[in-house]
Design a protein around this nucleic acid. Structure first.
Length: 598
RNA sequence: GGGGGGAUAGUGUAAUUGGUAGCACGACAGAUUCUGAUUCUGUUAGUCUGAGUUCAAGUCUCAGUCCCCCUACCA
């Protein structure tokens, strides 16, 4: 305590003890550790999966062990190749390198449960032969009805005690596709009276006469999760099979199946028995992670797709401008426990700001442009004159260098940065007030021009040539130095590009979407997307410049000074034929807080 | 009238397994600042309840309370 020993979460502590005792190999040899990420290819990955990926991969890396990426593709009805492709891409983007990964081939080394169907089938036959499994001909409804309830035991199936030979023959018929979907299942013979529902003769195989995205029509039976999962782990030599809390009740079954296979075998022939460990899933505020609800958002057109920048999907976060580093920092910061927590979404946003603050080049952009005419510019007949000024790219990183911004008679500032009748604490432009234009000059507002509707459409200001570069002017005759309270961003009219900027807010207005009515969609934020059609950005933003960092994912990210962090939406830019930027997150804004107080 | 898990400042997470309850985020106040950003400093606030064991309990015992999960041929 008080020292800098790293905090070890409970799973690390379990592994520490296992490595020390040599549970899986020689004592002290961490290379025997093996973890896995086992997604079902039936949807897109979201932040919650990111936690699992980072933890499993991080553990393997920390101990020098193995990390396996394995698809749990045991249900052909719901699974598709396109999900495999997106998941592989997302896992790689998050920075997790799985065993067998290679630069050239995205799916190199990726494992599939379907590759083990043959082995699983043989083991199932073994259980039948041991009298530990039987083919049940009851319908799904009958099975459900006879399973009992939480407080009452179930009743045994009439098929429970049929002869081994018959079971073998029936199972073989199922496999060959001689039975209709739903007509038969293979069940483990455990205990219909168990207080743990999972042990009431769970289904191991069901008949599905449908093509599988990888095995085609080779199979007519498909294994259930409980039967398959531990076997997949066993085959791959997984030592610590880490899953979420709701599988705690399944652990006895996980162990039962492996023990059943090992029953009667000599020690040398026993299959590997991994340890299942459960942890609490990630549960950020203002977010939903239900695949069903996420799908509904997409299908109802509430968002533009799975990768809409407002979506909590990995692809959404990526398009929003999140870095994989920030996502990783967020999930490790949240910790690993068995407590059902609520994670403040502000932590995710903060992780992004923290990362981008040090890395993102600064640029200037005006979202809601207000014209400013410098009335004393060109007082000697050179009104067209433009002046190049040097602006620092990143005050947090000297190596980021500087760039040139071009100043002239007409410039644009943010409409918010002017008030006709400003309160005392407003440090920006107002009648008679002086501010600094970032990296440029100090200007004083003398006059504003209104349109017929009474809206201010132009500011007429003078500039002070002695403040070139933005620095303080020389002291006056009495040695007094003029001060200015505020600095505002701007773009020069002669040196800006027209762009579309998309501003995102949280997708939901409630901390726990759906808490009030049961339907998260009732808490949708109607203002989660605001499109700025005509922002004016400094020219450097239009095309990549050599002074920009090499982002590993190729996504250009910037801080628009005083506004927030933005990334280029390359796809949308191409489609629009002009730059399109997405706002990832705003800067912290203590003025907005102050202004709200009144 | 079942089974499985969990409870430490507002939020999240530690506490050498019985020995000074710490960290991060937030909030608040101040300093610095060519971004009302960043950075820095300070303040704030906690062991679910009640008994018990002990010199000493977040930690051990007992009894409660509250929360989450479990009745798919999904994973």
């Amino acid at each position: 305590m008080g020292d800098d020993t790293p905090k070890r979460h409970f799973i690390q502590q379990i592994i520490d003890a296992d490595v020390a005792s040599g549970k899986w190999g020689a004592p002290g040899d961490g290379s025997v550790l093996a973890t896995r990420f086992p997604p079902e290819p039936n949807g897109f990955l979201h932040v919650g999966h990111a936690k699992s990926i980072c933890m499993n991969h991080g553990l393997a890396r920390e101990f020098g062990g193995r990390f396996v990426l394995r698809f749990d593709d045991t249900n052909p009805a719901k699974e598709e190749q396109r999900y495999v492709d997106s998941i592989v891409r997302d896992v790689a983007w998050l920075g997790a390198r799985w065993e067998g990964a290679s630069e050239g081939d995205p799916t190199a080394g990726v494992k599939f449960a379907s590759d083990y169907f043959g082995q699983m089938h043989d083991w199932a036959v073994e259980l039948i032969e041991k009298g530990l499994a039987y083919v049940d001909e009851q319908s799904a409804d009958e099975i459900r009805a006879t399973r009992g309830s939480l407080k009452e035991p179930g009743t045994p199936s009439p098929w429970r005690d049929r002869p081994v030979a018959e079971n073998l023959a029936e199972f073989e018929a199922m496999r060959r596709g001689e039975h209709a979907d739903g007509s038969r299942v293979l069940r483990a013979k455990i205990d219909m009276a168990s207080p743990n529902m999972n042990l009431r003769d769970p289904v191991m195989y069901r008949v599905v006469n449908a093509p599988h995205h990888r095995t085609g029509d080779a199979w007519h039976i498909y294994p259930m999760y409980d039967w398959a999962h531990g076997l997949e782990d066993s085959i791959e030599g997984i030592t610590h099979s880490i899953c979420t809390l709701e599988f705690e009740d399944h652990r006895p079954l996980y162990d039962w199946f492996i023990d059943a296979i090992n029953k009667g075998r000599a020690d040398a022939d026993k299959i590997h028995h991994p340890q299942q460990i459960e942890f609490a899933r990630l549960n950020p505020t203002y977010i939903i992670t239900s695949k069903r609800k996420l799908l509904q958002l997409v299908e109802d057109g509430r968002v533009s797709g799975w990768d809409d920048p407002r979506m909590p999907t990995v692809s959404g976060l990526r398009r929003r401008g999140y870095t994989s580093e920030s996502v990783r920092n967020f999930v490790v910061g949240v910790g690993v426990t068995k407590f059902n927590a609520m994670h403040d979404l502000g932590l995710l946003e903060g992780a992004l700001r923290e990362d981008l603050n040090t890395r993102a080049p600064r640029r200037m952009g005006v979202l809601d442009p207000l014209k400013v005419t410098i009335t004393n510019w060109g007082a000697h007949g050179d009104e067209e004159r433009l002046e190049d000024l040097e602006a620092v790219n990143n005050p947090e990183d000297d190596s980021a260098g500087t760039r040139t911004v071009r100043f002239g008679k007409t410039i644009w500032i943010e409409r918010d940065d002017f008030m006709e009748d400003p309160p005392k604490k407003f440090f920006r432009l107002g009648p008679g007030r002086e501010v600094r234009l970032r990296s440029a000059f100090w200007v004083t507002c003398h006059d504003s021009v209104k349109n017929d509707a009474g809206e201010v459409v132009e500011l007429r200001c003078t500039y002070d040539p002695d403040t070139r570069g933005g620095g303080n002017p020389p002291p006056d005759a009495h040695g007094k130095v003029r001060k200015v309270k505020g600095t505002v961003h701007w773009v020069g009219d002669a040196d800006c590009v027209d762009a579309e900027v998309r501003l995102f807010e949280r997708l939901f207005t409630a901390e726990k979407p759906g808490k009030a009515t049961g339907d998260p969609l009732d808490d949708l934020n109607p203002d989660s997307l605001a499109v700025v059609e005509h922002a004016k950005l400094e020219r450097a933003l239009a095309e990549p410049t050599p002074d920009e960092p090499d982002w590993p994912d190729g996504i250009r990210r910037f801080q628009f000074e005083r506004l927030g962090y933005f990334c280029e939406d390359a796809e949308a830019s191409r489609a629009a034929g002009r730059p399109v930027f997405n706002r990832a997150v705003t800067l912290r804004d203590s003025w907005a807080k102050e202004a709200k107080k009144g």
